[in-house]
């Protein structure tokens, strides 16, 4: 009996390594432990043995069974390994480039806009949006711009023939135009909402300029408006200083240059100073306009200037992007060359 079992184990041992696929393995396994397998037969033969031999033979059979199972397990592991290798295919060469397109990009103007907006969000400003098609009252009159101000000329501002713009509400029957600044968003927000207000309005504006290295028929602005009780010039400076330090670094130096805008009094242009620009022969570069909201503007939107005060500021996104990224021609932004877009 023992010899018979040894031979059986030896046979399994010898033939097991030749097995390559799972089906062969299963039939091989059945040859020993299947219903008609040799080990099964041996176990069945146990019944005919005298009682005293049973424990001895039983032990032998058990030992043989354990050996077989070990052989089967090893064999199966090898087969599984092979199967997995097959499923994976050939080994890869990781040095090959991915055939997928390079990552997508956000436009530098969009990145700059979001950066500016996110700075102001941190100090409690929220975004306000308005339409690009606007009316003369919202772009000029409400902002205290005199009826014969040159900015209203056909030479400088794009107008529309008399048409009905259903989602751009006019004040009376004034002309429709393409907004020349996003200040119209301030007016619409002041009219629609209640103070205190702290809004930032990024958006596209239009001026009737011939396209060249520094001019574009449309461009983008970010304007801010801060309305509360007892707002001061000092508050204006605090907010803008915060912004410039966030945008340009803690060493950013700015100066307020008195200027004139119809909608603010006092008004300032803000210049910023950079060692990088000094090399180009320019010490100070204009970066933004700002000022305290003119009492006339408050009156135009039905606010009491004795009760409410505030400031407004506005900057060109193209201009800031050009300074920050060192771009010398505004037309790059609108050409959409991938060699440009992928740099940012």
């Amino acid at each position: 009996m023992q010899d018979q079992l040894n031979a059986l184990v030896a046979e399994a041992q010898t033939n097991a390594h030749a097995l390559a696929v799972r089906a062969d393995f299963e039939s091989f396994k059945a040859r020993f432990v299947g219903p008609n397998g040799s080990l099964t037969q041996a176990m069945k033969g146990m019944g005919t043995l005298p009682k005293e031999q049973k424990p001895v033979v039983g032990k032998l059979i058990n030992e043989a069974k354990q050996k077989l199972e070990a052989i089967f397990a090893t064999c199966l592991a090898i087969i599984e390994e092979k199967e997995m290798a097959q499923r994976l295919g050939n080994p890869v060469d990781p040095s090959l480039a991915s055939p997928d397109a390079p990552s997508g990009t956000r436009h530098p103007l969009a990145q700059m806009r979001e950066e500016i907006v996110s700075i102001f969000r941190k100090i409690g400003f929220t975004i306000a949006e308005g339409s690009e098609v606007e009316t003369e009252w919202h772009v000029f009159d409400a902002l205290n711009t005199k009826p014969d101000h040159p900015a209203r000329d056909l030479q400088d501002t794009y107008y529309f023939p008399d048409r009905d713009w259903v989602n751009v509400k006019a004040h009376a029957d004034e002309r429709y135009l393409l907004r020349t600044h996003t200040s119209s968003v301030q007016i619409r927000t002041l009219l629609a909402e209640k103070p205190p207000l702290r809004i930032i309005s990024p958006g596209r504006c239009f001026r009737r300029d011939t396209v060249d290295a520094t001019h574009s028929s449309n461009f983008h602005q970010v304007e801010g408006l801060y309305i509360d009780k007892k707002v001061t010039v000092k508050d204006l400076k605090a907010v803008l200083d915060y912004f410039f330090r966030e945008l340009l670094g803690p060493d950013a130096k700015t100066r307020f240059r008195p200027h004139f805008f119809p909608y603010t009094e006092p008004s300032f242009e803000v210049d910023f100073h950079s060692a990088h620009l000094a090399k180009l022969g320019k010490q100070w570069v204009e970066i933004m306009g700002c000022g305290m909201v003119d009492p006339e503007v408050f009156k135009n939107v039905g606010y009491d200037p004795e009760q409410w005060s505030g400031f407004a500021f506005g900057m060109g996104i193209e201009r800031i992007a050009m300074i920050v990224y060192g771009i010398d021609d505004i037309r790059y932004f609108y050409q959409n060359d991938l060699r440009f877009l992928r740099q940012f």
Partner: peptide
């Protein structure tokens, strides 16, 4: 993997 563009209005 789209590239954002900005064109004139």
């Amino acid at each position: 993997r789209f590239n954002e563009c900005v064109h004139y209005s």
